[in-house]
């Protein structure tokens, strides 16, 4: 993957206090165009505040998250829950913030994600996996430069989760967005990311960084390969040391 020196977001020395206590940082990292960066860390280390600060939704106590593009829609966000608008049908949720010009993108995303046949359904008629797929489609419909994902697959069963991983990767091949994926699951981070940042326990700081060496299209077989297992083990050991 070609990484340029341009960044889609530069998280510069941010920290965040909560109830007077330092909960996060200081930490610095950057995400380059079309790069997927995974962030793993123990519970309570400040992963969600980190994503919210990266999105510009939460003001850091110090430092800043600098985006290369500040236009509305340049940052996509997939939450832990699908956060769908219950009163809008599937297709209308997907095109929530897009202009008429982006309509073909929505159509294509719905088709690629297998939701085209469900376009007229209400969100409550979808399964958990389909809801999350729709949340992903909605986030990508405005062609964001940066996609932020806060444990989006945590509530799904393993088969659905693996299927969504592949869908995310194929959408990424299509759209080449930069992404930050916060997750508890080390195997998810290794399968999806180009780079993995390991965070310490609270106050969360980046304590180690791993480049993921798997070139080319990632398939399910990769999950059962020795290098994959080895990298997962290394990251787990790192987490254990710094938790």
């Amino acid at each position: 993957m070609a990484i340029t020196t341009r960044t889609v977001v530069h998280v510069d020395g941010i920290s965040h206090t909560f109830g007077g206590a330092l909960a996060l940082g200081p930490l610095t990292f950057a995400v380059h165009p079309s790069e997927i960066v995974a962030v793993v860390g123990p519970s309570g280390c400040g992963k969600t505040p980190l994503v919210r600060i990266s999105a510009g939704l939460l003001e850091p106590t110090s430092g800043a998250a600098i985006h290369s593009d500040r236009r509305p829609g340049s940052v996509g966000y997939v939450f832990q829950e699908p956060a769908l608008l219950a009163w809008r049908r599937v297709a209308d949720n997907a095109r929530l913030f897009v202009t008429r010009r982006d309509e073909p993108i929505v159509e294509r995303l719905l088709r690629v994600s297998g939701l085209a046949d469900h376009a007229a359904k209400w969100p409550h008629q979808l399964s958990g996996g389909m809801k999350m797929r729709l949340a992903l489609v909605r986030s990508l419909a405005a062609s964001p430069d940066l996609l932020l994902m806060d444990e989006p697959f945590g509530a799904l069963d393993q088969i659905t989760r693996h299927r969504l991983h592949d869908e995310l990767l194929s959408l990424h091949v299509d759209q080449r967005f930069g992404a930050v994926l916060v997750t508890h699951a080390i195997d998810e981070a290794v399968y999806l990311a180009d780079r993995i940042l390991v965070m310490s326990g609270a106050p969360g700081r980046i304590v180690e960084e791993f480049a993921v060496p798997f070139a080319g299209r990632r398939t399910n077989e990769l999950r059962y390969s020795p290098p994959f297992a080895e990298l997962c083990g290394t990251i787990a050991a790192s987490l254990g040391r710094h938790a």
Partner: peptide, 11 residues
């Protein structure tokens, strides 16, 4: 999260 969505879209 729903409010955040609208904030990100500059609503």
């Amino acid at each position: 999260p729903l409010h955040d969505l609208f904030t990100l879209a500059g609503a």
